[in-house]
């Protein structure tokens, strides 16, 4: 049984221009000790999904549905207070997109790390010691504890944020573009840290990125998200070597490879407006293989034991 299950997650936002259909039924599992990568272009709904998993919804959410399970327990229907006290940070923690803004500028970073512990009545001394250990775990010196965020570099802040996410030994950690705001060299350091943590601490993680190459560096399985839908999931190898969905194929083709012969290509067209979304495949306007069933709602087809794809091209395999 999977450690974490998300089923048919839907999130719609209310805006002055109309209703934004940010997520339109996303399902996936994460096993224990596994790193599940979620890959998609900017605006495809990755951050919305991450926040949705923690049931942290912006004020203007109009619709939020689906089910969430953790260790077999339904956590979608837990009362808010119980969810806050039992699940958030204790069982599922998160590294937010943009470490620059994830830290309170007027609070010492150590206190920000210990804050959830102190909330759980851990004595001050113990909390402090644990925070220092966490800082050391992510490769920082313990005297960072008394610093303010503005005194740290971007890479240091990112490490602090990771230490903060690990402080309660969560079962699952969501990383939303943990390296996107950093320089390339720092990016590599952080990736190495994450890989080490995954290995040493047997961390289960959801790794969110727009960079499929980065995801392939750490993930065991991948999910590809497009316009709020999970168009393909599968093992790392399946998705990279045998991409099924035309979007995944295009995405891979547009990624530069170190040893590749082919030049990266751009995906023609633009993503659809999330307001007034048509039925059927969201990618069909840009898809070179589009054919007539594409304007009907697409079910998920399993192309192998581990690989699932949401595309009518594979309709006959199943049917």
């Amino acid at each position: 049984m999977a450690l974490f299950e998300a089923r048919d997650i839907q999130i719609h936002y209310q805006t002055s221009k109309g209703i934004v259909h940010a997520l339109n039924g996303i399902s996936f599992d994460v096993d224990k000790g596994e790193a599940f990568g979620i890959v998609g272009e900017s605006g495809s709904g990755k951050t919305s999904l991450a926040l949705g998993l923690l049931r942290l919804l912006p004020r203007n959410v109009e619709h939020y549905a689906g089910s969430l399970g953790l260790g077999g327990e339904d956590i979608m229907n837990l009362p808010e207070n119980e969810f806050r006290m039992k699940i958030r940070w204790k069982k599922i923690s998160m590294v937010f997109q943009g470490a620059m803004n994830s830290l309170n500028p007027v609070m010492r970073v150590g206190n920000q790390i210990t804050e959830p512990l102190r909330e759980g009545k851990v004595p001050k001394k113990d909390a402090h010691d644990r925070a220092v250990r966490m800082l050391e775990l992510v490769g920082l010196s313990g005297d960072i504890f008394a610093r303010y965020p503005h005194e740290l570099s971007g890479g240091m802040k990112q490490r602090v944020v990771i230490a903060m996410a690990l402080v309660q030994d969560p079962q699952l950690i969501i990383l939303d573009e943990p390296t996107s705001a950093l320089d390339v060299s720092i990016q590599a350091q952080i990736m190495n840290l994450l890989k080490r943590l995954k290995w040493e601490k047997k961390l289960s993680m959801i790794f969110i990125t727009h960079d499929i190459a980065l995801a392939s560096d750490i993930c065991d399985r991948l999910g590809v998200i497009y316009a709020g839908e999970m168009v393909e999931t599968g093992s790392l190898e399946d998705v990279l070597q045998r991409p099924k969905h035309p979007y995944t194929q295009a995405l891979l083709a547009s990624t530069p490879r170190l040893h590749g012969e082919t030049k990266p290509s751009f995906i023609p067209g633009i993503p659809p407006s999330l307001i007034a979304m048509p039925d059927g495949c969201k990618f069909r306007e840009r898809c070179p293989y589009a054919f007539e069933p594409c304007d009907k709602t697409v079910p998920v087809f399993a192309t192998s034991k581990n690989q699932k794809v949401q595309c009518w091209l594979y309709g006959d395999i199943h049917g």
């Binding site: 923690l54 958030r88 803004n101 309170n104 609070m107 909330e119």
Partner: peptide, 24 residues
């Protein structure tokens, strides 16, 4: 963002307000 982070940390709403919003 750090306000959302505080909520994700499971900090109760009144403390989020005092410590992470009003204080800032």
């Amino acid at each position: 963002d750090f306000v959302t982070v505080a909520r994700a940390k499971g900090i109760p709403e009144n403390k989020v307000m005092n410590r992470h919003i009003i204080r800032v």
